[in-house]
Amino acid sequence: MSVNQDEHRLAGRARIAVAGARAATGDVFGRSSRRERLGNVVFPALLLLALSVALAGLLAIIVWAVVEGGSRANVDLITNGTSRLDAASAGYREAILGSLYVIGGVILLIVPLGVGAAIYLEEYADKTRWWNRLIELNIQNLAGVPSIVFGILGLAFVVRGPLSLGFVAAAGAITVAMLVLPTVIIAAREAIRAVPPSIREGSLALGATQWQTIRRQVLPAAFSGILTGTILAVARAFGEAAPLLLVGATTFVTFDPSLFENRFTTLPVQIFNYSKQPQEEFQVLAAGGALVMITLLVVVNSFAIGLRNKFERRW
């Protein structure tokens, strides 16, 4: 009988101790001033407001493009060539091909260069060396440089300078790749940095080399984050016009461009040129081009997001 009473007393004391600990913890961490409580309400509200404004702006652009250019939303808008005279038969074939050439070249450049630079800076670089700190500083600064500056650099070093490619789509791809490469490097570094150190330590403990650990463990785990940065970079590159004007994206191109021959044009440049025409038909044509551009962006991003989600589930 006395044993049962002792057990009940011990259990009661334990419950009292737990309740006291909870009360003390709640008293220390649960106290918040009126200003903090107000901040907890206002800050999420501001975030929701900012998101709503961004979505409303995007929705307004889509609705405007559908209303103004919906009458031209047909196959001819994609397959017909450009024209300065007949808006009824004009299209965006050359501009679409030019954009695909430029974006294809951008992807081929930014993925290996961006991921390789991120791997070096996160896995191999000695942070105490001055040149590694200088590289990091330059990457962060280049992410905020205006796009027109990259256009000038492309004109000086890619079109005319050491490369001397001329006013071709390849020069545009290299120029835009330089513009969005810092974004890819920064996103890839953050994705690689987010991989838990225990994964690296476990792989190395089992006898794998550092490169085997990076290739078989780190990169698969960071793939979704790397692909997210690439998607953002490609979306920005797709809408760029200012740097391309300096490296060969001319006003009107009446022939199908190629990667290394002849001049080229892209969708943003051609939409801008159509919108400058005084005739109302060309204004409608420009809105139709905006609709085509939005559709292509949605298709490309949807494919990339689906690929990212597939690798996330696999990992």
Rank of each mutant, 00 (worst) to 15 (best):
W131E: 15
K127V: 06
D76L: 00
N141K: 03
I96M: 12
N141H: 00
D86V: 11
A95N: 12
I139V: 14
G91I: 02
I135R: 00
S147R: 01
S147Q: 03
I135Y: 08
G91W: 04
P112G: 07
I78V: 15
F150W: 15
G104S: 08
E68W: 05
G104A: 09
E94A: 15
G144R: 04
E136L: 07
V145F: 04
G144T: 11
L77S: 13
G70D: 07
T79L: 07
G81M: 04
G104E: 14
A117L: 14
D126N: 14
I119C: 13
G91Y: 04
R93W: 13
I148R: 00
Y124C: 08
V66D: 08
I96T: 15
A65Q: 03
D86Y: 05
A117F: 12
G105I: 04
V63P: 00
I103N: 05
G116A: 05
L108R: 06
I135L: 15
G70E: 10
I103F: 10
N138A: 11
W130C: 02
G114S: 02
E122K: 00
V66H: 06
G151W: 11
E68A: 11
N80E: 03
I148Y: 01
I119L: 15
I78E: 01
A125R: 13
L113Q: 04
T79C: 00
G70M: 12
R84P: 07
G81L: 03
T82E: 10
S147C: 02
G144P: 10
N138T: 10
V67I: 14
A117H: 00
A65Y: 01
V102S: 06
E68T: 09
E123A: 08
G81H: 05
W131I: 10
V145M: 07
G151S: 09
L134W: 09
R84A: 13
V75M: 12
S83H: 02
Y120R: 03
N138H: 01
E123K: 14
G91N: 11
I148T: 05
I119P: 10
V75L: 15
L121R: 02
S99F: 02
V63Q: 09
G114W: 02
P112Y: 03
T82L: 11
P146A: 12
L77R: 08
S99D: 15
V67F: 05
A73D: 11
V102T: 12
S71P: 01
L85K: 07
E123Q: 14
T79E: 10
N80F: 09
L85P: 04
